[in-house]
Amino acid sequence: MAERRPSSSGTGLKALATAGEGDDFSVIAAIGGVRGVVESMLPGVVFVVLFVVTQNLDLTIGVSAALALAQVVLRLLQRQSVMGALSGLVAVGICLIWAWKSHEARDYYMFGFLTNAIYATVLGVSLIAKVPALGVVIEFIRQLPTEHFKAWFEDWTGDKALKKAYTVITWLWMALFLLRLAVQVPLYLTNNVAALGVARLLMGIPFWALAIWVSYLIIATPMHRHRIAKAHAGQAENGDSTIDTVTTVKDE
């Protein structure tokens, strides 16, 4: 029996793109590791706690911005990858600017509402079109279709088990985004910043980790079987080519 090699490193959907390659899938690694989780959650925690305690929006914005910037600087000083922290800084910056311009602390969460609504809409449209968006993204990451796009598309959509798995997790992620909106938008409308902040934190990284883990459980087996079937098909094709070549030489 061939040994399955360990899955390669990666976070988020990139981690899921290697789901069928090994048995050492780590949710913690997939969501950025312990440090990545802390860096993602800390600005939000500081924002809601500091605002609830001081009711000073300008101070809260200033401290949260300084903290997000400090995380990027610290990674630079340690000569570590700053892409995760930098993307987090941009997201936090948009949220803080939104709250600062409106003078409403609750507007810190408006950007999240928009992104969740957009993601849910895109996933929903893909399901209606019967081309699960998560399948498109994961397969795009797994094997970049720089050419022969049609063959790439038909390769995974033609595998009923794999396409069904991608369809299920696309429903799962769409439900996650809609659930966030269903819980958090009423809190926004009632201006309950403390409850909104807590809900955002609980439905952020924890829900993301759960979605990635469940998605892995759903797609790992069909993805692994698809890779094996494709490898066997390639070996058979190469074998036929070798036979044809030998036959040609004999005829000559």
Rank of each mutant, 00 (worst) to 15 (best):
V246A: 10
V125T: 09
R227G: 08
W152D: 00
D244G: 09
A29T: 13
R4Q: 14
I212Y: 10
A19S: 15
L178M: 13
K14T: 13
K164D: 12
A19I: 12
L67F: 08
I97W: 11
R227V: 10
S40N: 07
I228E: 13
H226C: 02
G36R: 02
N238M: 13
V82W: 14
V45A: 03
T248N: 06
V45S: 00
D251S: 11
V136N: 04
I118K: 03
C95F: 03
V46K: 00
A120P: 09
Q71N: 06
V136C: 04
H103P: 04
H224R: 14
P186S: 07
I118D: 05
S215R: 14
G36M: 04
T167H: 14
E3G: 08
I138D: 09
G33I: 04
G44A: 00
A182E: 11
H148S: 11
V137A: 09
V63P: 10
V246T: 07
K150W: 15
A182S: 14
S26Q: 05
L86D: 03
S8A: 14
K101T: 13
S215P: 06
S241Y: 14
A65R: 08
P6D: 06
Y119Q: 09
H224S: 05
M41C: 05
H232C: 08
K101S: 12
K150T: 14
S40C: 04
K14I: 13
M203C: 05
S102R: 07
L89P: 04
A85W: 10
V46Y: 00
Q143G: 05
F149N: 01
L144Y: 11
A236I: 15
V249K: 10
A91P: 01
M41P: 00
A117S: 11
A229W: 10
N116Q: 06
L69I: 15
W173S: 03
T190C: 09
L67C: 06
